[in-house]
Amino acid sequence: MAFDADRLSALAAAHGPVVRVVVAGVRGSTPREAGAAMAVWAEGFEGTIGGGALELEAIRLARAGLRAPRVLHRALGPELGQCCGGAVTLVLEAVDADLLERARGEVVARPVEAGAGEMPLEIRRMLAEARAQGVEAPTRLVEGWLAEPVARPRRNIWIWGAGHVGRALVAVLSPLPGLAITWVDTGADRFPDTPPEGVSVVPAADPALLAAHAPVEAEHLVLTYSHALDLALCDALLRRGFGRCGLIGSATKWARFRRRLSGMGHADAQISRIDCPIGDPSLGKHPQAIAVGVATCILAHGLGSGARQDARQGKIA
C-alpha cells in the first residue's frame, strides 16, 4: 500500500490524530508483504497489516501516543504465538505536516530511528531511479531510513453503467490501490447517493460522446442498461483507442456485436481486442460473482512484463 498523503490528510481532518503503521520489512512467512499499511486513530482504523496478535499490538501502541517514530521487530511465532513463523519489522509514526510535506515526489523517504545519519546511498539511488524511470520503488528500511512509494493511480479504469453489475464492480475495485476509477452513466439518478471514496462519477446524457475524451491507455468495462448504448460505446472506444476493453454479454450478443461493428468499418483484429463475456463465467451470473471474476483478472494483469503484453493486446477477461 503506497503512501497516500491525500487520504491520510482526510483521515486526520475527520478523526483527529492519526498514526500510520507500515510493514517495513519481512522475513519468512508473514501475514502481509512489505509496504502493507494501516492508519489508526482513537476510535477506529483503516487498512490492515495482517490480522491477529501483531495487528492488535500495533493498534494498541498507536493509540498509546507517539512522540517520535517507533520501530518494532517481532518474531511472530516466539513473541506473538502466531503460526506464520516469520518475522516482521513495523514502523509507527504520527501523521503530521512534516510527514505529509515529504510526499511530493515518487518516493517519500525519512529517518525513523534515533541516531539515523544522512540519507543512505541505497535510498538515494531509489529516489533517482523513481524520478528517472517512473518505476514504483519498493518499501525499504535502510540504516534507520524508511522509503516508500507515493500513491499514484497507475491504471485508469472506466466503468460504463451504474446498474447492479456496475455497482458491484465499483464496490470491489474501489478499495484496491493504484486504480483511478471513472464511473459513467446517463444521469445522476443512476448512481448511489454516496459513491465510494475516490471514484469519479460522471453523468453523461450521451456516454458515447464522452468516450472520445477517455485516455487512450484506459481500461474499459462496458455494461450499460442498453444493448444499443453498449454497441455505441464499443464503436466509439474502437475509434478512440484503449488499453483494454471488456463487454458484458453472452456469446450470442457478442456474435451480433461483431457483425455490427464490422459493418461500421472496424477490422476483425481490432474488434477482437474487446473481450466478451467479462469475468469468469464459471463463477455464475450474480453481479458480485461477475465483479469478483473481473477484479481477479485486473489484478492478474497488473503483474509483470507478461501482463503488460496482455494489456497491449487488450485482454481484460
Rank of each mutant, 00 (worst) to 15 (best):
T186K: 01
P177V: 07
P175E: 10
A218S: 15
S200T: 15
H227L: 09
G241N: 07
F191G: 00
A214V: 12
H220I: 09
L173H: 09
L238W: 00
L176C: 05
A188I: 13
G243S: 12
F242P: 07
T252M: 02
R240Y: 02
D235M: 03
D235G: 03
A228P: 04
L179K: 09
G243H: 08
L233V: 08
P215Q: 13
H227W: 11
E197S: 09
F242T: 04
A251T: 13
S250G: 12
C234K: 03
G241I: 05
G241S: 10
A212L: 12
V199H: 03
A214Q: 03
R190K: 15
A205G: 10
L176F: 03
V172E: 12
W183I: 02
P207Q: 09
D230K: 08
L179C: 02
C245G: 01
K253G: 11
G249S: 05
V216R: 14
I181Q: 01
P215T: 08
P192C: 09
A205T: 12
G198A: 04
P207S: 11
T194S: 13
L229H: 15
G187T: 11
E219L: 05
D230E: 04
S226R: 14
L237T: 00
Y225R: 15
A212T: 12
K253Q: 12
D206S: 11
A188G: 09
P203N: 10
L176P: 04
R244W: 08
V184C: 02
P195L: 08
D193E: 15
P192L: 11
A251D: 14
S226D: 15
H227K: 07
S226L: 04
L223R: 03
T182P: 01
E219A: 14
P203V: 03
G241E: 06
L210C: 02
G198I: 06
G187R: 15
G249H: 02
A214Y: 04
S200D: 12
A180R: 15
L237G: 06
A188D: 11
G246E: 08
I248V: 15
S250E: 00
R239G: 15
L231N: 04
E219S: 14
S174G: 09
H227R: 11
C245M: 14
L237H: 00
V202Y: 01
L176E: 03
C234Y: 02
L229W: 10
A212C: 03
D235L: 01
V184D: 10
L247C: 05
P177K: 06
P196I: 00
P215L: 06
A212V: 08
P215G: 10
P207D: 10
H227P: 12
L173I: 09
L209G: 07
R240K: 14
S250P: 13
I248H: 02
A205R: 12
I248T: 01
D206W: 03
A188V: 13
G241Y: 05
P215F: 08
R240P: 05
